[in-house]
């Protein structure tokens, strides 16, 4: 008998769950975590509008009287504009270069048969195990020996090869239906035309996703630029944050100014993430 009542009760429970969204704990949890994660930035933004005395009045979290003056000052007087430009150039070159180089490699790995293919693929993947710190001393010496120190080449060259990009593009190319590939083969379409007219248009989502990931990654680099760029004019914005730390008067650090710099530094990757969230999530296997 009890078995029957259970059977009767179960379907109505499901209907209840779907019709009445009693999800307030879920919403509360989400809003709480999101606020917790966002609060440092919200506070940083508020304080970036404050004057030095306002900042030192710790519990004052109202909008400051400096308005956006700190931003203007940090961009001009403290050279953040030129650091950001340097970062932008570096990130765009790395993004375009890495994707171009990886596209070519993925075409070779997927659409050709040749000796040592697996060995080469392994060599490319294994680079994941040797991040910059593992090879930083010789890499630095190499740049010095080639006269690349303080150049865009040194900032971008070491980032061109990418195991992740080659791997993801290879997976994507492999998922293209056989018959499409064979159709191109029957038409005698050459590899570069195939890449340009078929593969790239068919991989737009994947390429934009990789583009955002690479852009954010390049923009956020800190250690390598710190070492290889000693000329402050050529420095990127992340290291520019370090220069900003010493800003202040009469022993009082101008934190409002520094927070303005931090907000500015965050802005480009954040905008990229929000604008390209679709392809980004798709690339990570999370289609919207």
């Amino acid at each position: 008998m009890s078995h029957e009542t259970q059977d009767d009760a179960a379907p109505s429970a499901i209907t209840d769950a779907t019709l009445v969204p009693e999800q307030w704990p879920v919403h509360a949890g989400l809003i709480g975590s999101i606020l917790l994660m966002a609060s440092p930035l919200l506070l940083a933004f508020v304080m970036s509008t404050q004057t030095v005395p306002e900042v030192y009045d710790i519990t004052n979290i109202g909008a400051g009287s400096d308005g956006l003056a700190n931003y203007l000052e940090v961009l001009t007087t403290y050279e953040m504009a030129s650091y950001m430009l340097n970062s932008l150039v570096m990130s765009v070159v790395v993004t375009v270069g890495k994707i171009a180089v990886s596209l070519l490699a993925a075409v070779a790995l997927v659409f050709y048969r040749f000796r040592f293919k697996n060995a080469i693929f392994f060599l490319i993947l294994f680079t994941l195990m040797v991040p910059v710190p593992v090879r930083i001393v010789p890499l630095y010496e190499l740049m010095a020996a080639w006269g690349w120190s303080n150049t865009l080449l040194a900032l971008t060259g070491p980032y061109l090869a990418s195991a992740t990009a080659v791997f993801l593009l290879r997976q994507h190319f492999l998922s293209i239906p056989d018959s499409l590939v064979e159709s191109a083969k029957l038409d005698g379409v050459g590899p570069l035309r195939f890449l340009w007219d078929v593969l790239i248009p068919m991989s737009r989502g994947m390429i934009s996703g990789l583009g955002v990931i690479t852009f954010i990654y390049a923009w956020n680099q800190y250690l390598w630029p710190l070492i290889v760029i000693s000329d402050q004019n050529k420095q990127v914005v992340q290291v520019g944050m370090k220069y900003l730390q010493s800003v202040g008067n009469a022993g009082q650090t101008d934190w409002g100014l520094i927070m303005a710099g931090a907000v500015l530094t965050l802005l480009p990757p954040l905008v990229a993430l929000i604008a390209f969230r679709g392809p980004l999530l798709e690339t990570f296997g999370l289609a919207e």
Partner: peptide, 14 residues
């Protein structure tokens, strides 16, 4: 997911 875009240097400074 936005902290994915957060530069380490910004996180540290803030």
């Amino acid at each position: 997911i936005w902290p994915y875009a957060l530069p380490t240097a910004v996180a540290g400074t803030v």
